[in-house]
Design a protein around this nucleic acid. Structure first.
Lengths: 349, 349
DNA sequence: CTGAAAGCGCTTACAG
DNA sequence: CTGAAAGCGCTTACAG
């Protein structure tokens, strides 16, 4: 005896209506040529009975599970809610469910997470790779979201351009000495962002970069960043490569009695949940996760539909970089429009 | 013609080894009585071929999908990463996959999200309900994570006790006037936390509660909380009911030139990602999400295994409240041990 | 210890 | 326009 479901199946609807299961199936899916009247009757009855199609039956027959996997390097990343929400939304709209898998820890775990999803029969997956991991194609189509400069990337925010936006904003405020603050020197995303900032600077601007991972290797986790000293050295802008670092910088500066934005400006990346909530709120740059997720998912779905046999391949998309959007929340500053104290004879442009 | 899979199936292993599929199935699952030698040979060959069992076939036969659903009121909630990670880990350990569903928006969307999961054939689900929503049982077992004082709750952190911990900590620092800061007056979780704080106070302590949702209804979103004024009124401790509000309070106070923890103390709830990162870092109270997820998942799995037919019911667990743990990061304060300026003649206990 | 057979619920090519 | 039948891959009660 096989376990039975609680709900009705096609066969039950068919017998109770005196038609064949094939006809019920056709009517419900709208595929076969079934007379309008019958379609109507069948749908009505199915609804009455609360018919829910069995994914298992359908999957077994069609070889498609209707499920996409989402692999993340670390769910604890504060970006995760936005990503998950966007992917879930896009997948849902395309008729797919989303199975999550955390590759907590090392690179091996990432491969394991991918395998776990394959075993569960996902039709494809979206992978946000760990560090500079190369994804070797698995047993299903894979869309990679990393950064446009990474080879194998399917689609991503244009982190480099986002950096340019930040640089332009700070230039506009009159800043000339910028401290870039990152927390992971290996991250291609962070490097692209930093490169973008440097590229977007005017020729009379100067930037230094503080890598927190390096600093902490020497001075211990959670050590002070020494930003007050940087202010004394003449830095007026702190451009963090993520809102978490921006927050760290903001509070360290405030604690040192430095006023933001009157004395210095602080910017971040990603428009995370707290950016609009803190005082002063953070100027940041936002990825269009809905657009990115939409492109990744539709590229994935196109590939799935195109291939009759489930096979592994890295998916590519028409558009592989999505512009980031500057969110200005600190519009005045020490050197710019609406400024309170100009320094070093700087003037508003 | 049905779509074919890329990998081998039981039948292929069986023919290539000259045995029956039943025997292969039994050998691989370790159920039937198959001779040790044969088991060995079959397993070896299966591994060689890279055999991956078809979830669809298994699910259709057994009526079990091996997948659990996770329904959240709003994935954007900063607590989500911890929850998702803990649930995914517990589910994974129990051999289940996790399908996510966001009930973005209203209560109707929550029901819809639940239905979507049922349609995907989940064996059960974990629901973190929206506000005070009552979950009416769906077509599968449901574990609810809310707060122990909510009826229908399966397991949750003991938010009330967490509040007591905070009160005890603040009392120990010598605080007497506490401002409780919440952002959702309807939330049973936040109310339990606030009640816990009030209950944990010594008789000579006094608390007022500021509900941000009410304040913003009058003064607009993102309005200042007026905390500097509260300091002037004699409040020395700000106990937020969530780390996000704690962060908002912390930065608003710092911006007003109030020194933390020298002038006042700020505490939060949940130990979110930024709590250890900000300066000064936040004293907070942490849920044991791994324990909660473990209990929820195993209660769910027990129910699933016990019932031969898939049916809806609210699952209960042996332990329904898990203690919260105080994380002290601001150990000195205006009125307590290691204090810099005692007020009103207060002394260290 | 091993195998033949049934059947989970569905979709689809084919016949009528 | 409608139906009978095959078969996706698996597990399990039963027979040998």
């Amino acid at each position: 005896m096989a376990s039975s479901r609680s709900g009705p199946n096609l066969s039950r609807i068919a017998t109770s209506l005196g038609v064949s299961v094939a006809t019920v199936s056709n009517a419900l899916s709208g595929k076969g040529r079934v007379s309008g009247q019958l379609v109507e009757r069948i749908r009505e009855h199915a609804a009455e009975l609360g018919y829910v199609p069995s994914q298992a039956g359908r999957a077994l027959r069609t070889g498609r599970s209707g499920v996409l996997g989402l692999v993340l390097p670390d769910i604890a990343n504060p970006l995760f809610p936005k990503i998950a929400q966007a992917i879930e939304f896009a997948a849902s709209a395309a008729g797919y469910g989303v199975l999550i898998a955390d590759s907590r820890g090392d690179v091996a775990a990432q491969t394991e997470a991918i395998n776990r999803l394959v075993e569960r029969g996902v039709d494809g997956m979206v992978v946000i790779p760990r560090r500079a991991t190369r994804i070797s194609s698995a047993a299903c189509p894979i869309a990679v979201i990393d950064t446009p400069s990474t080879s194998g990337n399917t689609v991503a925010a244009d982190h480099w351009q986002g950096g340019c936006e930040i640089a332009g904003h700070l230039a506009g405020l009159g800043h000339r000495r910028i401290l870039i603050i990152g927390n992971n020197q290996e991250s291609s995303v962070q490097n692209d962002r930093a490169d973008g900032i440097r590229s977007g600077m005017r020729s009379d601007m100067h930037a230094e970069t503080l890598w927190i991972d390096r600093l902490e290797r020497d001075s211990g986790n959670g050590c002070p960043l020494g930003l007050a000293e940087k202010v004394r050295q003449g830095f007026t802008a702190f451009a963090a490569l993520s809102d978490l670092q921006a927050l760290r910088a903001l509070t360290e500066l405030q604690q040192a009695g430095i006023n933001i934005p009157a004395d210095v400006s602080v910017t971040g990346f990603d428009d995370l949940i707290w950016s609009p909530v803190v005082t002063p709120s953070l100027t940041t740059v936002r990825m269009d996760m809905d657009a990115i997720a939409g492109i990744a998912v539709s590229a994935l779905v196109d590939t799935i539909r195109a291939s009759s046999i489930r096979q592994g391949m890295l998916v590519t998309a028409e558009i592989d970089r999505v512009p980031m959007q500057l969110i200005v929340r600190q519009s005045s500053g020490p050197c710019g429009p609406g400024t309170k104290n100009l320094r070093d004879g700087e003037h508003v442009r």
